[in-house]
């Protein structure tokens, strides 16, 4: 797969979205990868909802999840990740995203940053918007599945 954009922009902010080869199997072994069962519309939908619900941290990064019935989330990544991150893109540039969460093992120890700061605010926002329950928030904070 080559990098390519979704034909639509997000409804709220008109953000463009880029599907990256890196996070669809074209990257290195350690790169997070979107789950193959997710369609491009599903992936864009996670991003669109994150923008719509303003699930962002102080740096402007967006975070998303995809409900799976009542009280659960779909797996977004091949390592059972249920949360995704969309790093804040530059002005006018398309955004991209990748599955995140469970354990903080996505970078060498010296580069790992505690996630509690953004996670607390983002997960509370997810509860406020009805995306997750309070119990799911606590479990996700611990790195547990929901």
């Amino acid at each position: 797969m080559q990098d390519h954009e979704h034909p639509r922009s997000t409804a709220r902010s008109q953000y463009r979205y880029l599907f990256t080869a890196k996070h669809h199997g074209g990257g290195s072994k350690g790169d997070a990868m979107w789950h193959p069962s997710l369609s491009e519309d599903d992936e864009f939908g996670v991003f669109d909802r994150a923008d719509d619900l303003e699930l962002s941290d102080e740096a402007g990064n967006l975070y998303g999840a995809l409900p799976d019935g009542e009280g659960s989330l779909r797996f977004l990544g091949t390592w059972q990740q249920q949360i995704s991150k969309f790093p804040c893109a530059g002005e006018g540039a398309p955004w991209h995203g990748y599955p995140l969460w469970a354990l903080n093992d996505s970078a060498p120890p010296s580069r790992r940053k505690p996630s509690r700061g953004w996670a607390t605010a983002v997960f509370i926002r997810m509860v406020e918007t009805g995306l997750i329950t309070r119990g799911m928030r606590i479990r996700l904070m611990k790195g547990d599945h929901v």
């Binding site: 505690p114 996630s115 509690r116 606590i138 904070m141 611990k142 790195g143 547990d144």
Partner: peptide, 14 residues
């Protein structure tokens, strides 16, 4: 009996 910090990062205890 006792209450205190136990995580270096301040993350949720599991």
């Amino acid at each position: 009996l006792r209450l205190g910090a136990a995580s270096d990062s301040g993350e949720a205890i599991n």
